[in-house]
């Protein structure tokens, strides 16, 4: 499969993930692509018109691979995308990411959280894209909830989060209200 078609398929999974928050969307061919689901998503989104901030804790091999996608490497914030391993990510830093402005809330950052297999638990989600409410397992420790409540309260400003599992992605747009069951 060419990169053209691979990127299109990855994007459709991302679009489904952001329009149906909390529901894992499979990323085809994640098992054979460099860095799996993360590689597919980065390949689909990044180019020379974008900037990405790599959070400390990522290995050199991944950094080199990301450099090949030509995105501007932002050593500090702001950046269009922030990439972090879930284990290394400090959720209180969500407040420091670009939130967009009142007139252009879309100019906020998107956090790509490489969750792999972390600790997690059930959460209850409500909002656009969710039929009523959804109880689902997310690979996130409950400590993320306070940061998310602040993020959601800033709506329509705020950060959007994409959780990357080994072969799937989960979208958490800023519009989603998240609580415990």
């Amino acid at each position: 499969m060419t990169r053209v078609h691979q990127d299109q398929r990855s994007f459709r999974s991302l679009l489904a993930a952001m329009s149906r928050p909390g529901i894992p969307q499979r990323l085809p061919d994640a098992d054979t692509f460099p860095f799996g689901s993360l590689g597919l998503v980065l390949s689909c989104l990044l180019d020379s018109a974008t900037s990405i901030c790599l959070w400390p804790g990522l290995d050199k091999e991944l950094e080199n691979w990301v450099a090949g996608l030509n995105a501007r490497r932002a050593s500090n914030l702001p950046a269009d995308f922030v990439l972090a391993r879930a284990a290394d990510w400090d959720w209180s830093a969500l407040d420091d990411l670009p939130q967009g402005s009142e007139e252009a809330p879309e100019n906020s950052a998107t956090l790509l959280c490489w969750a792999l297999r972390g600790p997690g638990q059930d959460y209850v989600l409500q909002g656009p894209g969710i039929n009523g409410q959804l109880t689902t397992w997310l690979p996130l420790a409950p400590s993320f909830l306070m940061a998310w409540e602040r993020n959601h309260a800033r709506y329509p400003q705020g950060v959007d989060v994409i959780l990357l599992l080994p072969d799937a992605c989960i979208g958490l747009p800023r519009s989603t209200q998240i609580g415990l069951p």
Binding site: V4, D7, M18, C44, L45, E106, S175
Partner: peptide, 27 residues
């Protein structure tokens, strides 16, 4: 032509915008 006519850079730009549009319904 490229698949679906548009070049990949243009598609990527639109795709990034679409993800933000879905996150801020109606904006």
């Amino acid at each position: 032509y490229n698949f679906a006519y548009l070049d990949e850079g243009s598609k990527r730009a639109i795709r990034r915008k679409l993800l933000k549009a879905v996150a801020i319904p109606g904006h």
